[in-house]
């Protein structure tokens, strides 16, 4: 008996060890280094280093561009996460009810995920190109003058469409996988009880989908905040006049293009802080309601 308990205490760590080692070396260590870097002023090659305390942070908060970028990020991330989640849930439910054409739809819906994010951005850039794109042509018929290189709102719409488009496929997949996991017997029982499709969704499907939905909520938040930069880069480059300059793109511009390592590290730290806080909130307040 004693031996079994000993084994059980060691077992979880054995199972986790490879994960934790890789995570530590390739993620946590660089993150810690970035934390340290955010207190330094350094040239690109690391030849001259000065400790500057919180100067990189205070400089950011004094920068009106940075503050604007926070607002832009909020609009962009919330729109992308909400749109991508709700549209894909609707689509997954629709496919779930189909018998004959489910396969065609799945293929149709999933393919954008096979396209590299930068290419997806390029394709949307092309479709909305004011000179040669199809969309501005169609919009002109409706009396809308489209030029996202000058109009900040249109530019934002463009990046939201492109980023959402890419993420819908992904959410759709996991929603379909989640729906599959719902036992048919439960659905039949509900149907026999005479519950209509809308009621069945709220009382049965949605609660049972909650673990998937929660997972996707966290992942979509991270996606909208972190992984959308190739799309921005290929479509608007943060413009016009910073209308689509989300925080992660600013990190890229300042760190990768501008080689201003201290400031970009400080921005990364702030961004990671925000995402961690968001995730903690999601786990604290939302996961509690999820029944597994």
């Amino acid at each position: 008996m004693k031996r079994a308990i000993f084994r059980n205490q060691l077992l979880p760590w054995l199972l986790l060890a490879p994960q934790l080692v890789v995570t530590f070396i390739f993620f946590l260590w660089p993150a810690a280094q970035a934390g340290w870097q955010s207190f330094l002023r350094e040239d690109a090659f690391g030849l001259k280093t000065t400790f500057v305390g919180f100067q990189n942070y205070t400089a950011l908060l004094d920068d009106s561009q940075y503050v604007d970028s926070i607002g832009v990020t909020l609009v962009f991330s919330i729109s992308v996460a909400v749109l991508a989640l709700s549209i894909s849930l609707l689509l997954a439910l629709a496919v779930d009810r189909m018998l004959t054409s489910a396969r065609t739809y799945t293929t149709l819906l999933v393919w954008p995920y096979a396209v590299a994010p930068a290419i997806a951005g390029l394709l949307w850039w092309f479709i909305f190109n004011p000179t040669i794109g199809l969309a501005p042509y169609a919009l002109e018929v409706l009396g809308i003058d489209w030029d996202h290189s000058l109009d900040g709102t249109q530019s934002m719409i463009l990046v939201i469409i492109a980023a959402t488009w890419k993420q819908i496929s992904y959410n759709f997949l996991f929603f379909v996988a989640g729906l599959q996991a719902i036992p048919a017997s439960l659905r039949e029982a509900a149907a026999i009880d005479g519950a209509g499709p809308v009621r069945r969704f709220w009382t049965l499907t949605l609660p049972l989908l909650a673990p998937t939905t929660f997972f996707l909520l966290v992942v979509n938040t991270v996606y909208a905040l972190f992984d959308t930069f190739p799309v921005i880069d290929a479509t608007t480059e943060g413009g016009p006049a910073q209308a689509t300059n989300i925080l992660v793109y600013k990190v890229y511009v300042d760190g990768f293009l501008g080689l201003n390592l201290g400031s970009s590290a400080a921005q990364s730290v702030i961004l990671m802080g925000v995402v961690i806080v968001l995730t903690v909130i999601q786990f604290r307040y939302i996961e509690r309601r999820v029944e597994y």
């Binding site: 000058l150 900040g152 480059e237 413009g239 016009p240 006049a241």
Partner: peptide, 21 residues
């Protein structure tokens, strides 16, 4: 120094000019 970013600023200010702001 930092001229890549300064090029970005040039674009932004030009866009503000064209937008009439």
């Amino acid at each position: 120094g930092s001229y890549v970013q300064i090029r970005g600023i040039i674009d932004e200010e030009f866009q503000a000019l064209l937008a009439g702001t």
